[in-house]
Design a protein around this nucleic acid. Structure first.
Length: 546
RNA sequence: GUCCCAGUAGCUCAGUUGGAUAGAGCAACGGCCUUCUAAGCCGUGUGUCGGGAGUUCGAAUCUCUUCUGGGACGCCA
């Protein structure tokens, strides 16, 4: 609704600008003023036109507002303030209708149609060689929330996890397990470079010993160790993610690209199209043709492939599946990889502009003021499961979501644990639970609730914050989707909760006056719907009771 | 040496097409429960936006420079 109002207003404004002699393309946009006393929405268009029109912003603004058709747009007041802002005040009664809109559309409220493009978002993509750690958790949280936001914005989204089951690391996993298995029978484990040292490897070896005894002690059980280890870890990965409220549509196997010949085909195509050359016995890809700082090796002099080669085939595969956009969420240590990958995609004829790479920065866990590095579970870096056990999936997802991906983040366990009631996620969940409890109270008191279809008995001014916040939901969704910033949703959920708490303290909801009660409850229900939906976008559950 | 991210209140962070007096939470202090959940509300204080220069009507935001912290720079994955 508000989008429509603003869009209509925008059209009117463009007409007005034309009549003022503005021919160039300027985009008009509205923002919510920091100080709501300034108005409901404002635009700075007058200031931005000052130079081309060679007039003072205030003069231009006054010209503009004198031509605005106030009645048509549900505006009750429009004025010029500050350096030339145009501030709009809308009719309260009209704006309050957003509540009925929410009730009608339910969880579809805020659904917008930015685009129906097909988007593939690849995230986590952890090697199945150990447990997920906290940085994976951050990527999982971001990728999953972004997917939900994009879906709500109309995109056709596929969530994909790439499984590195084709390369050397998976062989090393097999060897590592094998050595630990031998160790269990009293032999020395020979843990070479590149082998995996997490406690989970020992656990797997024990499990295998229990399952098959000494069957693979003296004959070659390597294949079995490799496969069994990977299956086990992959399942663990899926379980962890599921408990973290993250599920993938596609688990894409790197190995499948070798099996069906796509890696080879990609390589041959690159050679045929003259994107490669040989040097020192290796085959190099001319990524410098497309903005990379140096060329990259595809085939090493020992004839084995680098990581890049199957990854090119993988991205080619994704593009061939008809996606309009590919989003890759990668760890901070991959930023040097971006140019290389984009260049390589260009070499195979893909459009690198379709590929968006989001880099997530480090996560540190802080307890008692110092960084915690060791996980009891894996004996290595802190795992996602460690944190979930400590603070729960909801709290951790909210904490991840609340911060922009580009910020190196400190996760303060003291705050998350000892002061759980100070944690923002509880604040938002509490708002929801409070409303839920109102409806429970009704049942206890045997009061019947009837949804109203207009407001006549309540003081709309007191509901201002709630109404304005509800109105902004679609706008926030749009911004979060276009800029790929899920933390906007976390901020939004918090501000809606804040509006609710404030109102709840100020006004008694269930009163003797049943008309008033029904109107208030109608509004409460709308708030509840949007709170639930916004938390859902973050993968956070609501609680009926706290 | 090159590149990326960060530097904003005591702490954790918002502030992303340059705009109004730079904002939240936590921490601190003062009020508010005979009444729907006080995990709440209301109020108070807090800033060389790392430093310096520039661009302009206007800069936390853009440019240059510089300092600090983290990370990346492989025929690793």
């Amino acid at each position: 609704m508000i989008k429509k109002i603003l869009d209509d207003l925008k059209i009117d404004l463009y007409e007005i600008l034309k009549s003022l002699g503005v021919n160039e393309d300027v985009e008009i946009f509205f923002e919510v003023p920091q100080d709501t006393n300034f108005g409901d929405f404002s635009t700075n268009i007058a200031m931005r036109l000052a130079k081309t029109l060679r007039k003072s912003p205030v003069m231009i603004a006054k010209d503009i507002i004198s031509r605005i058709d106030v009645a048509k747009n549900h505006i009750i007041k429009v004025d010029v303030a500050g350096a030339g802002f145009i501030n709009f005040f809308f009719d309260r009664k009209f704006l309050s209708e957003v509540i009925f809109e929410v009730l009608k559309e339910k969880e579809n409220f805020g659904n917008i149609k930015i685009s129906d493009e097909k988007v593939n978002i690849e995230f986590v993509s952890a090697n199945p060689t150990g447990y997920l750690h906290i940085a994976h958790g951050r990527g999982a949280s971001y990728g999953d929330s972004l997917s939900r936001i994009l879906k709500k914005s109309g995109y056709n989204v596929t969530k994909e996890h790439y499984v590195n089951d084709g390369g050397n690391q998976i062989n090393n996993l097999g060897f590592s397990i094998q050595q630990r298995y031998f160790e269990l029978f009293g032999r020395d484990a020979k843990m070479e470079d590149g082998y995996y040292h997490g406690k989970e490897i020992i656990e797997i070896a024990k499990m295998i010993k229990e399952e098959v005894g000494d069957k693979y002690l003296d004959n070659d059980g390597y294949e079995y160790f490799r496969q069994r280890g990977m299956d086990y870890l992959l399942q663990g990965l899926k379980d962890d993610l599921k408990d973290f409220n993250v599920e993938f549509d596609v688990w894409f196997s790197e190995k499948s690209l070798y099996d069906n010949g796509e890696v080879e085909k990609t390589l041959n195509q690159l050679i045929k199209d003259n994107h490669t050359y040989e040097l020192d016995g290796a085959i190099w890809l001319k990524t410098t043709d497309y903005n990379d700082e140096k060329d990259r090796v595809l085939v090493k002099s020992d004839k084995s492939l680098t990581y890049l080669t199957p990854d090119i085939a993988y991205h080619k595969n994704k593009l061939s599946r008809g996606y309009d956009q590919l989003i890759d969420v990668l760890g901070a240590d991959h930023h040097g990889y971006i140019n290389r990958l984009k260049a390589a995609i260009a070499c195979v004829g893909g459009n690198p502009d379709k590929v968006h790479i989001e880099i997530l920065q480090m996560v540190r866990v802080i307890q008692d003021g110092v960084e915690v590095k060791m996980s009891k579970r894996s004996g290595k870096s802190i795992t996602l499961r460690d944190i979930m056990d400590e603070v729960g999936s909801d709290a951790i997802r909210y904490m991840y979501s609340a911060k922009a991906l580009s910020t190196p983040m400190d996760l303060d366990l003291d705050l998350a644990l000892r002061q759980t009631n100070e944690n923002p996620v509880y604040y938002v969940q509490y708002a929801y639970a409070r409303i839920a409890s109102l409806f429970r109270m009704l049942k206890e008191k045997n009061i019947e609730f009837k949804e109203v279809s207009s407001f006549t008995n309540i003081n709309l001014e007191k509901c201002d914050k709630i109404i304005m916040t509800l109105l902004q939901y679609p706008l926030v969704i749009e911004e979060a989707a276009l800029k790929r910033l899920p933390h906007k949703i976390a901020q939004y959920a918090y501000s809606l909760a804040s509006a609710l708490h404030s109102y709840y303290n100020d006004e008694k909801i269930i009163t003797e006056n049943s008309l008033e009660t029904n109107e208030k409850l109608t509004m409460m229900k709308a708030v509840q719907i949007v709170l639930k939906d916004s938390l859902n976008l973050l993968g956070v559950n609501v609680k009926e009771k706290m």
